[in-house]
Design a protein around this nucleic acid. Structure first.
Lengths: 207, 207
DNA sequence: TTGACAAGAATGAACGTTCATTCCATCCTC
DNA sequence: GAGGATGGAATGAACGTTCATTCTTGTCAA
């Protein structure tokens, strides 16, 4: 076996392979994609590709890591600064996911990762590690919102954060499989978060 | 090819195969499970199994149909009669999912189905068909809740229903991959549904 | 009760294909 | 002309599937 090269040019080459593999995985999933599919998509010979990756598993793992990082980045971008109002933050996340789904397909890849994590402990760990900071951001978001007026009563912010994160996961599923759009999902979230206890406050209406 | 038999004994035999296949798919996914895996699990010879199923695809399809039916049934059982209060209904669904996850593994199979639906139009159709009545039940649930005091303002029940369904999907993911329990998720839902209105909950943010 | 016979059930070796991977001759570039 | 980069044939294992054959069971005439 030829040891994997580490030059800067080799990195470019690796990225080329990963881009091709990503397209294949997106179209056919991890296991239904063959090396030959990737080779064809990357327009490479097998001997050449194996100079840059030790095997298929390494490619899958690299794609998983990159995808998780992409999704995390999408959250990070929205939540990094001073936390915005809860609904606004969620809406922006939904929009970011919709954009990713349309242009890069990342959320669909995420669904495949969930499935793979069920049988591959290494990927399950990666997923768990990737989601931990996101969860924490959601907790902060909820806590900040509490200061802005939302009081969730005796319910711990962690529990609320899990449900909100779950709602995002649910949007990924419904976006990918049922073509749901971010705007209507955000509308539903608005209804949930703004659910008035009494009908007196429709002064907080929308644009 | 030997035509598939239709006697009652054959049906028993088919169920035996499906039970074995289900265990394999649960452990390794659809594509990483080989026919030999299923044959070993079912303790059958290949020639014998092919008397009952025309091929692997047929087995996968049968498992998908059965799994979707199982999940739908779990919802149906909770929502069939007079709709209970929203939070109570959702809590019961979460509990049902947790039970299925512990004993049958159905929700984990559902995640695999999502991934497969991304690349197999036939399975995507099955999923869409299966979820349509569930969605409708959620709409009814929201509408009934409105009569019980929750008024979601100008937000259409359909949008709320999508988010609630999404929250359930999100629980399936977090249950399967992060061992989240139904009780704490229900607690989060309670906090969400009971949250009093806040003037900050206005989605006017832009990207 | 027995033996001949039919038919469904089950077997497992074998098939052609495709899989991931390796090996090596050849090409380019410095 | 040396050495990294590349192409492509070749490898053996594993894949889904098939098929000739054997086993099992039930029937019925003698």
């Amino acid at each position: 076996m030829v040891p994997v090269s580490h030059s800067p040019a080799a990195d470019t080459r690796r990225q080329h392979v990963l881009a091709a593999a990503r397209r294949c995985f997106l179209a056919n999933g991890f296991h239904a994609t063959s090396m030959q599919d990737i080779l064809r998509e990357a327009q490479m010979s097998p001997g050449n590709l194996y100079r840059y990756f030790p095997g298929k598993d390494a490619i899958v793992l690299a794609i998983v890591e990159a995808t998780l990082a992409e999704v995390t980045a999408a959250f990070e971008q929205t939540l990094l600064d001073e936390p915005p109002p809860l609904l606004q933050a969620l809406t922006e996340i939904l929009r970011a996911i919709e954009r990713l789904d349309d242009h890069e397909g990342t959320p669909r890849l995420a669904i495949q990762i969930w499935g793979e994590a069920l049988r591959n402990p290494a990927i399950a760990s990666l997923f768990a590690e990737a989601i931990t900071p996101v969860r924490q951001w959601f907790v902060h978001l909820v806590e900040a919102q509490r200061h802005h007026g939302l009081t969730s009563g005796p319910v711990a912010p962690e529990h609320l954060a899990n449900v909100l994160l779950g709602a995002i996961h649910g949007f990924i599923v419904q976006r990918a499989l049922l073509k749901l759009d971010a705007a209507s999902y955000a509308e539903g979230l608005r209804g949930l978060l703004a659910a008035p206890a009494s009908p007196q406050n429709d002064a907080s209406g929308t644009s």
